[in-house]
Computed example of a mutant assay.
Amino acid sequence: MTSEFAGKVAVVTGGGGVLCSTLAKALSGQGAKIAILDLKLETAEKVASEINSLGGEAIGVACNVLEIDSLKEAHQKVLELLGPCDILVNGAGGNHPKGTTSKNYLLPEDLESTEEGLKTFFDLDPEGIKFVFDLNFIGTLLPTQVFARDMVGKKGSIINISSMNAFTPLTKIPAYSGAKAAVSNFTQWLAVHFSKVNIRVNALAPGFFLTEQNRTLLTNTDGSLTDRGNTILSHTPMNRFGTPDDLTGTLLWLCGEGSAFVTGVVIPIDGGFSAFSGV
């Protein structure tokens, strides 16, 4: 039986990363043609090569999601080699140390502390915070401006990547939490805006997934959990971190006809984290 995704073109930004490369491979496994967009061409081509070796059809494209000209060049290449975009996964995103505090809470003595490397709220770098907002929000908005035009007049699906910290902010990371809240809000706004041209817009909100970005925050060098890692698992009823494959079922549902009347939702994929009060 032919998959509903057969022949469709899916563009995945940040596609060189662990989570988004898995999403790309899931769509390829259902017959979609894949464009892997990543800041590093080598990384994008590596994932595309892996997909092709599995019998799929994929290309790797260098692209900076914060530069409209770079996105337009990538779009032209996708058009020429694969065709117009049917599915857009806005996967580019991330945090920055300059937008992160050292401690969960501010204590009076922190203001007089000479501890090396201590960073309070008052020490946060505006440029670091701006970088995080740009990467997550502008890095979702601009690719949508460039690729969603292909979808007007036919069925299209846009999947943004939010986070559980968009619902309730996590300690230490005000910039990332705020930026992902903006992505969730934008998902709802865009779903309404595009509702008359048959483009659905939804978002995945991953809980805690062990990636290269957060591995040092959640695990020690010997593989044991840090205090933060232990706190997370104690508040996750399923008592484990997510794996990339945990995202794929929801992705395929939101991109397919099974969710034809679903738009503007942000789906938690969090092992029960958001349902647990901590007691």
Rank of each mutant, 00 (worst) to 15 (best):
M164C: 10
L251G: 07
T171A: 15
L204C: 12
T243D: 09
S234A: 11
T216H: 13
T226H: 03
V197W: 00
A179C: 06
T263P: 03
G207E: 00
Q213K: 06
N198D: 12
T226L: 07
T236E: 07
L210A: 06
P244M: 11
P169K: 05
L252G: 06
K180F: 01
F167C: 09
S163N: 04
T168S: 13
L217T: 03
L233H: 10
P206N: 01
L204Y: 07
L170T: 08
N165I: 15
A182P: 09
D227G: 02
S224C: 08
L252S: 03
A166M: 09
K180R: 07
A179S: 15
L190Q: 14
A179H: 10
I159D: 00
S184G: 10
V183C: 07
T211W: 10
S195F: 01
A260K: 15
S184V: 09
N239I: 02
A181R: 11
T171S: 15
L217C: 02
N239A: 14
F167Y: 12
E212A: 08
K196W: 00
S184Y: 12
L247W: 04
D246L: 02
V192I: 08
L233G: 10
A166D: 02
G223N: 09
T171Y: 13
L217S: 12
T221E: 14
A181Y: 11
A179T: 13
L254Y: 09
L247Q: 10
P174H: 10
S234H: 07
T221K: 14
L251T: 01
T171R: 13
L210W: 07
S163G: 08
N185D: 00
S195C: 11
L204W: 05
P244Y: 09
S177K: 04
D227Y: 01
K196P: 00
V197H: 00
G242N: 15
T231Y: 15
L225D: 06
H235V: 01
T263D: 02
N160W: 12
F194Y: 14
